[in-house]
Structures are given as C-alpha cells and as structure tokens.
C-alpha cells in the first residue's frame, strides 16, 4: 500500500516536526546580550591560559625519565592520567571555540548588515569543528596520542591577535556607551 516515495515523504514531515519542536523549545540559556565591557574578556579564549601548566604536564623529558626509571605499571598509570588530563583540556578548548563562536553570533545578531557568505562559512566551520572534535575525543578515549597536537592547538587559540583584541575593545566601548544611555 505504501510506496517508497510515500514513506520518504512521511519521514521528511516527521523530521520537520522534530526540528520545529527543537526550534521552539525553551533555550537552555538566556539569549546572549552584548556583555558589559568588564566581562568582554570572557569572550576570548580562557582555557588556553592554562597552556603553560598543560605543557609542563606533558613535557617530553618527564616521559623519557619515567620510561627509564619507573616500572611499567607506573608508566601505564601516568599515561592514562595524562590522557584524562588531555581530554579535560580538549573539553576546555571546545569551550574556547564555543566562546569565539558566541562572540561572532552576538556581533552578527546586533549588526545592521550581515554577510550571507560569512555566516554560512561560520556555520560550516562550527559543524566541521563539532565533528572533528568528536573524532579527536574518540581518538583520545581509545588511547590515541593526540597530545602533541593539542599543544599546538592550544598555542593557536591562545595567541589572541592584537586586531581581535582591538575589536573586542571597540565592542566594550560600545557596550559601555549603551549602558550609560539606558
């Protein structure tokens, strides 16, 4: 009685209803407003600030020393703990990514003009990041050695460019002006 086309159509409409429910559900957090200038620093990367500690924990010298002088059991335990730390740090990097994206969303929302292409590009970047992030997390969970790469990644996010800082500063000035007028 039901052909493939009908079934496909039903699935499509069901998907549409699911998306509608998701779009209409109450947001888990309050809509982001333009933050006060004092909290603008929070929009930049935070977890990257712990980069030095992270680097120290993963110093290659320590690993070599342990391999020479410690038992296999201890080495295994250290490796497992390092992986755990790496995972937590990766989660922090994810938050930093989300924070950067959040900044872009606020700016786009409050801009009188947004670029279609730029917004689409960011949407794709976010989707891609989510996917890749999941893969790296899985890699770490399965005992992979992505630690070196995380160090590189951290350097990257942590080095907030002066131009971005200047833009955030401008945003802060605007927020202050708005606060004064209201």
């Amino acid at each position: 009685m039901w052909n493939a086309y009908t079934l496909l159509f039903v699935v499509f409409v069901a998907l549409l209803l699911g998306l509608l429910a998701w779009a209409l559900r109450r947001p888990s957090r309050r809509p982001p407003a333009l933050p006060a200038s004092a909290s603008l620093d929070e929009l930049g990367p935070i977890h990257c600030q712990h980069f030095l500690i992270f680097q120290q924990v993963f110093a290659a010298g320590d690993r070599k020393y342990l391999a020479r002088h410690a038992s296999r059991r201890l080495c295994r335990r250290v490796r497992a703990e390092r992986r755990h730390v790496a995972k937590q740090f990766l989660a922090g990097l994810g938050e930093d990514f989300a924070r950067l994206n959040h900044l872009a969303v606020i700016v786009a929302r409050l801009s009188p003009k947004v670029e279609r292409r730029a917004e689409w590009r960011r949407f794709r970047l976010v989707a891609r990041f989510q996917l890749l992030y999941a893969f790296v997390w899985l890699d770490l969970a399965l005992g992979g050695s992505a630690v070196r790469e995380i160090v590189q990644l951290t350097r990257l996010i942590g080095s907030t460019s002066s131009r971005l800082e200047a833009a955030i500063y401008e945003l802060g000035k605007f927020a202050t002006r708005q606060a004064e007028t209201t």
């Binding site: 994206n101 670029e115 590009r121």
Partner: peptide, 25 residues
C-alpha cells in the same frame, strides 16, 4: 564596522582550529 572587523578574525581563528583538528586526526 564592528561586524566587518570581528567576523573575519573569528572565522580565521575557527578555521585554524579546524585545520589543526584535521592534522590531529
């Protein structure tokens, strides 16, 4: 001007993050 200034910078950062994640994998 704020949008024009901030968006490319954030995008560049996000793109680099993605590239590094690709390298990691």
């Amino acid at each position: 001007s704020v949008y024009n200034e901030v968006t490319p910078l954030v995008h560049a950062r996000l793109r680099l993050l993605n590239d590094r994640l690709v390298e990691m994998l």
